[in-house]
Design a protein around this nucleic acid. Sequence first.
DNA 1: TATTGTTATACTCTATAACTATA
DNA 2: TATAGTTATAGAGTATAACAATA
Lengths: 147, 147
Amino acid sequence: MVAHPRYWPLMRDPNALLPGYALRRASTAMMAELGARLAPLGLRSTDVSILLVVDANPGITQSVIGRALDIQRANMAPFIARLAERGWVARQRVDGRSQGLLLTPDGRALMAQVRTVIDRFEDDLLNRIPAEHRAHFLPALQALWIR
Amino acid sequence: MVAHPRYWPLMRDPNALLPGYALRRASTAMMAELGARLAPLGLRSTDVSILLVVDANPGITQSVIGRALDIQRANMAPFIARLAERGWVARQRVDGRSQGLLLTPDGRALMAQVRTVIDRFEDDLLNRIPAEHRAHFLPALQALWIR
DNA sequence: TATTGTTATACTCTATAACTATA
DNA sequence: TATAGTTATAGAGTATAACAATA
């Protein structure tokens, strides 16, 4: 009889040596962690990405945000609708088709809390990386998606 | 009148400076790329992760694979069923509850093709990273999810 | 003609609960 | 009592197609 798989003796996982696999596992682990920290604010990570762009670019439209964050127009609609419904984002007419987006006073108050969570999260993430690799992390990632 | 958002002049994206955000964008970009390369083989990236573990650990059960790859038992079932249905993986009794998994001859032939795709993909991924950052990439990622 | 915002829809991935059969 | 495999289901994220109003 074979050893019971529950106590598998020397499990070999070839995936762990593949940068692509490690990238996916690291991403899902960190996004789960971030999601847990944002849940008390009623936000998900995509909400935060959108709010940061609106805050830095008052009057921007959801189409432009979508192109920057690589989110389809069709998928932006419910995100913005939810942020507006909760009173964090306001829409102002740009022309007959477009509406510029702004943070409301409530939205700005929320962002103060968001920044506390994000700063802490990013700090903790970087500190999990051994010091000698830390400075290389962001440039390496950016090379994989920017442009 | 404001500048039309389509031609947004100096769009500021605070997200691009956040390691956590860059990690997510890099991961989704690379997984989309891998998905496109695996599609001709009728495989998705999770199939490949599973097949690599089975190949390296003949007789392993799907529960043990799930714990290694962080896939819920309930979500492993349809993956294994599909791989067995296509004739790439065979099940053999371990005890009344468990079944050990093995690659079939067809499965081994498929793996030769899979390895060609994966080797090329991982090579291309690393080569997109500037040389001075490259060696730091895998150790940094592993620190974020291993253990 | 092209673009914005929107709805509808579908597919994947992920998470939980519950069931059976077995240990 | 705990585990393996399974089914059902629900929530996200993501992709395409289509439409009305507008440029």
